[in-house]
Simulated scan of single mutants.
Amino acid sequence: MGADEDKSAIKRSYGQYCGLARALDVVGNRWSLLIVRELLGGPARYGKLQAGLPGISTNLLAERLRELEQSGVVQRQLDTDSNAIAYTLTDWGRELRGAVTELVNWSTPLMISGPRDDNFQPRWLVVALESLMEGKRTEVPATIGFEVDGTLLTVRVDEMGTRVALEVDGQPETVLRAEPMVVLGLASGMLTTEQAIASGEFRGERLDLTAVFGP
């Protein structure tokens, strides 16, 4: 093994007795939090993780998974459907949801410009919508579908809070088909319901949208 390989094998640390520094020692490497994002939706096999992380090399994904596993953030389990290995967050790893939520909310001004040339996968909206709509509740349950790039996300809001699902059986009656930046703008409060409807294709009950997002 050469000198450069020796250096790359050494786990880097900020060397600071500070909670933020030590947290970044664990999840501050490039791709680490995006792996967490993928696993917040549930266990995933290696191929699914790689498909959800366009641009990451096979070797780097394996390295990041190994680091997160060694740190106690990720663990392996048997996928009973395929009898293959899947990766999942540990209980401690799932506690990163709060940090991911705060970062998604903080990122709102950065999303105004739209995707431009960036990769985009509709299922990334699951974590984004859960984060941006955290705390939203309605006395009367409302179910809304957001159709983005041919993928349907179903958002149900009631007195228990907000739940987002991907490609569930059956379509909700209220559906807004729109670009991702429109859906994010509505969820973040930067677009009104009327502006979002005007920017996409809408069918169903406007009352469902206004009950959740206002007029």
Rank of each mutant, 00 (worst) to 15 (best):
D4G: 00
S8Y: 07
S8D: 15
S13F: 10
Y17C: 08
C18F: 11
L20D: 06
D25S: 11
V27M: 09
G28K: 12
W31V: 03
W31F: 11
S32L: 06
S32C: 15
S32H: 13
R37W: 09
L39Q: 08
L40I: 14
G41V: 12
P43N: 15
G47E: 15
A51H: 06
T58L: 02
N59R: 14
L60V: 11
A62I: 00
A62F: 02
E63H: 12
R64S: 11
R64A: 09
R66Q: 10
E69L: 03
N83G: 14
I85D: 03
T88C: 12
T88N: 09
L89I: 10
T90A: 08
T90E: 08
D91R: 14
W92F: 13
G98M: 07
A99W: 15
L103C: 08
N105A: 06
T108V: 15
T108F: 04
P109S: 05
L110V: 08
M111N: 08
G114V: 13
D117I: 12
F120Y: 11
Q121W: 02
W124A: 07
L125T: 02
A128Q: 12
E130H: 02
E130C: 04
S131H: 06
L132P: 01
M133H: 05
G135K: 08
K136N: 08
K136W: 03
T138G: 06
P141H: 04
A142C: 14
E147G: 01
D149Q: 06
L152T: 05
E159C: 01
M160G: 00
G161C: 06
R163K: 10
V168K: 04
D169L: 11
D169W: 03
E173Y: 04
L176K: 06
P180D: 04
V182G: 04
L186Y: 10
A187H: 09
A196M: 05
G200N: 05
E201Y: 05
D208M: 07
F213H: 12
P215M: 09
